[in-house]
Design a protein around this nucleic acid. Structure first.
Lengths: 183, 183
DNA sequence: ACGGGATTGTAGCAGTTATTACAAGGATCG
DNA sequence: CGATCCTTGTAATAACTGCTACAATCCCGT
């Protein structure tokens, strides 16, 4: 027993949970090992090297992010201002905060071209775009994609406010929705 | 000569330039020292410790960011869609890219409560808000501040697109401006 | 020229990092 | 029982981290 595949699976899941609470900063092998009750030696027995671990774990985080979003807001077509309101409220939920924090962390790592983050960040970006577009009313096409990009930019901006002590500004953006998007 | 104050000044400026190209990741004392042609020993002679160095250097970066913005776009009152268009174009300039990359880096560091970034990020956030509000038409008050927050969220969102291989989406947001903000 | 403070280099500390060599334990199968 | 392979601990590596003790050098006023 304690099959190597099972162990890999278990470790990946525990590390995914751990990264959500700890962020991308403190991720030495020893710290990761402590977080899932094993030793650095064993991590390198299960996996080839640290890069493989991070790639698998962040992939898992992205999967769970995606399915959490799907579960929280069923895919029904909404007008932009309603969708933005609901998505923004969802993203600002305490339960979602660690995920958004990790998302910003990955964006920063991708921005400085740190492997393997650029590819992962781009993939998540398109995941988010698809999620929004699937919930946006109107016919498919560039126009709807434009509006989806607009909403995602706003949501990310709100997340940045929330992460930098700008809760008041984040609230203001939510308030501004009705004023600006509903002329 | 080689007055201590002068040296501090010179080092701060060189390190500010260096952080803009290198980001917040590789900032050991030895690397910082190499970037400004001195030794780690001397950095700790000029400054009390690494935290003081980072605080001063990031403060300098913030100053220069602010004055670059002021210089690029004089403070005249503009309607929201025009200001957003110009600010977005400004922020997406190649010359401005390193600064935005560093800004995202600092946001991520602040999000994980890494000292001294939360305070610095909050300060820059308010700087940016003030810059936008000073260029936004209409009477001062919560309504104008709301619109400023809205624009800043969009600009940060566009920056995230640009940093994660979403140039097409960033373009789409700029396109969407006229459609959405000009009903 | 000389004493004394300001400046700087060398070397080292104790801690961390990813990774590996070696070997001991454990189970499994002949 | 014995041999083999899977699993795991111990210990080490070489590199890096922020920081410091010590000593050498430099420049200045006298």
């Amino acid at each position: 027993m304690a099959n190597r595949q099972d162990q890999r699976e278990k470790v990946i899941q525990m590390l995914a949970d751990h990264l959500l609470t700890a962020g991308l900063a403190q991720t030495s092998l020893r710290q990761l090992a402590a977080a899932c009750g094993t030793s650095d030696r064993m991590l390198l027995y299960y996996f080839a090297d640290k890069a493989e671990i991070m790639t698998l774990v962040l992939g898992r985080v992205a999967e769970q992010f995606s399915s959490a979003l799907d579960q929280a807001l069923p895919p029904e077509r909404l007008p932009p201002h309603v969708l933005l309101q609901q998505a923004s409220a969802l993203v600002r939920t305490p339960a979602m905060r660690p995920t958004m924090r990790l998302w910003l962390d990955m964006v920063a790592a991708a921005a400085r071209q740190e492997q393997p983050f650029p590819a992962i960040a781009t993939a998540i970006l398109h995941q988010l775009m698809a999620w929004i577009e699937a919930r946006l009313e109107g016919p498919p096409g560039p126009a709807r994609r434009q509006r989806a990009a607009f909403l995602l930019a706003l949501i990310d901006g709100i997340a940045i406010f929330d992460m930098t002590g700008g809760e008041a500004e984040a609230d203001a953006v939510e308030q501004a929705l009705t004023d600006i998007l509903l002329p």
